[in-house]
Amino acid sequence: DRMTSQEAACFPDIISGPQQTQKVFLFIRNRTLQLWLDNPKIQLTFEATLQQLEAPYNSDTVLVHRVHSYLERHGLINF
């Protein structure tokens, strides 16, 4: 699994950072998509996403918020 070119453009700090940071991003992105796909008729809020993310992935709330906002803005969740 890899970041898309659009994700890389929107998250230059992640793509240029350590490999582990990219893996954390990918986990948060994929898990958020999975959470929404589990029940697409219900809006997936940032707060609900954060509550359902497993530790330690829920510890970087800023990154979780950025990923959630990106997915929502680009019509990948909550459409």
Rank of each mutant, 00 (worst) to 15 (best):
D1T: 08
D1W: 05
D1Q: 06
D1F: 14
D1L: 09
D1H: 05
D1K: 15
D1V: 07
R2C: 13
R2N: 10
R2E: 04
M3N: 03
M3T: 02
M3Y: 08
M3K: 00
M3I: 15
M3A: 03
T4A: 05
T4G: 06
T4K: 03
S5K: 10
S5W: 12
S5E: 14
S5P: 13
S5G: 10
Q6F: 07
E7Y: 00
A8V: 12
A8M: 11
A8I: 08
A9Q: 12
A9K: 09
A9R: 11
C10V: 09
C10N: 14
C10K: 07
C10D: 15
F11D: 02
F11T: 03
F11V: 02
P12Q: 09
P12C: 04
P12V: 06
D13R: 03
D13I: 00
D13Q: 04
D13C: 02
I14A: 01
I14G: 00
I14H: 01
I15D: 07
I15N: 07
I15T: 13
I15W: 15
I15V: 14
I15Y: 15
S16A: 13
G17C: 07
G17Y: 03
G17S: 08
G17R: 05
P18W: 04
P18H: 10
P18F: 06
P18R: 08
P18V: 08
P18M: 07
Q19Y: 11
Q19E: 12
Q19C: 09
Q19M: 11
Q19A: 14
Q20F: 15
Q20Y: 13
Q20M: 11
Q20V: 11
Q20T: 09
Q20N: 11
Q20G: 14
Q20A: 12
Q20D: 09
Q20W: 13
T21H: 12
T21L: 13
T21F: 07
T21K: 15
T21V: 14
Q22A: 09
Q22L: 13
K23G: 10
K23M: 09
K23H: 10
K23D: 07
K23E: 08
K23N: 14
V24S: 14
V24Q: 13
V24E: 15
V24R: 13
V24T: 14
V24L: 13
F25V: 03
F25Q: 00
F25A: 03
L26I: 12
L26G: 06
L26Y: 09
L26S: 10
F27S: 08
F27W: 15
F27K: 07
F27Q: 14
I28M: 03
I28W: 00
I28G: 03
R29A: 01
R29P: 00
N30L: 02
N30E: 09
N30M: 05
N30P: 00
N30A: 06
R31S: 09
R31C: 06
R31M: 15
T32I: 15
L33H: 10
L33P: 00
L33Y: 07
L33K: 09
L33R: 13
Q34D: 06
L35D: 01
L35T: 05
L35G: 04
L35P: 01
L35K: 05
L35R: 06
L35I: 15
W36P: 00
W36M: 04
W36E: 01
L37P: 00
L37H: 06
L37S: 14
L37E: 13
L37F: 14
L37K: 14
L37Q: 12
D38L: 09
D38P: 00
D38G: 10
D38F: 05
D38R: 13
D38S: 13
N39C: 10
N39K: 08
N39I: 01
N39T: 06
P40Q: 08
P40E: 06
P40M: 08
K41S: 13
K41P: 05
K41H: 14
K41R: 15
K41M: 11
K41G: 13
I42A: 14
I42P: 10
I42R: 11
I42M: 13
I42S: 14
Q43C: 07
Q43W: 11
Q43D: 10
L44C: 06
L44D: 01
L44V: 10
L44H: 02
T45L: 02
T45K: 05
F46W: 14
F46K: 06
F46E: 13
F46V: 15
F46D: 04
E47F: 06
E47C: 07
E47W: 10
A48G: 11
A48T: 12
A48K: 14
A48Q: 14
T49F: 04
T49W: 01
T49E: 01
Q51D: 10
Q51N: 15
Q51L: 10
Q51A: 13
Q51E: 13
Q52D: 13
Q52K: 14
L53M: 08
L53K: 02
E54L: 05
E54Y: 12
E54C: 10
A55C: 11
A55K: 06
P56F: 03
Y57W: 14
Y57K: 02
Y57V: 07
Y57M: 07
Y57L: 07
N58C: 06
N58W: 04
N58R: 12
S59M: 13
S59N: 15
D60T: 02
D60W: 09
D60A: 10
D60E: 09
D60L: 07
T61V: 14
T61C: 12
T61Y: 08
V62W: 08
V62N: 15
L63S: 01
L63I: 06
L63Q: 00
L63D: 01
L63R: 00
L63F: 07
V64W: 01
V64Q: 00
R66A: 07
R66N: 08
R66I: 00
R66V: 00
R66M: 05
V67P: 00
V67S: 01
V67N: 02
V67R: 00
H68G: 02
H68E: 01
H68W: 13
H68T: 00
S69M: 11
S69I: 06
S69W: 07
S69Q: 12
Y70V: 01
Y70Q: 00
Y70R: 01
Y70S: 03
L71C: 06
L71E: 02
L71G: 00
E72R: 05
E72H: 11
E72T: 09
E72P: 00
R73L: 12
H74E: 15
H74R: 11
G75H: 12
G75D: 12
G75K: 13
G75E: 15
L76K: 13
L76D: 04
L76F: 10
L76M: 15
L76S: 07
I77G: 00
I77M: 02
I77E: 02
I77S: 02
I77P: 02
N78C: 02
N78S: 01
N78Q: 02
N78E: 00
N78P: 00
F79Y: 15
F79A: 15
F79K: 15
F79M: 15
F79G: 14
F79D: 15
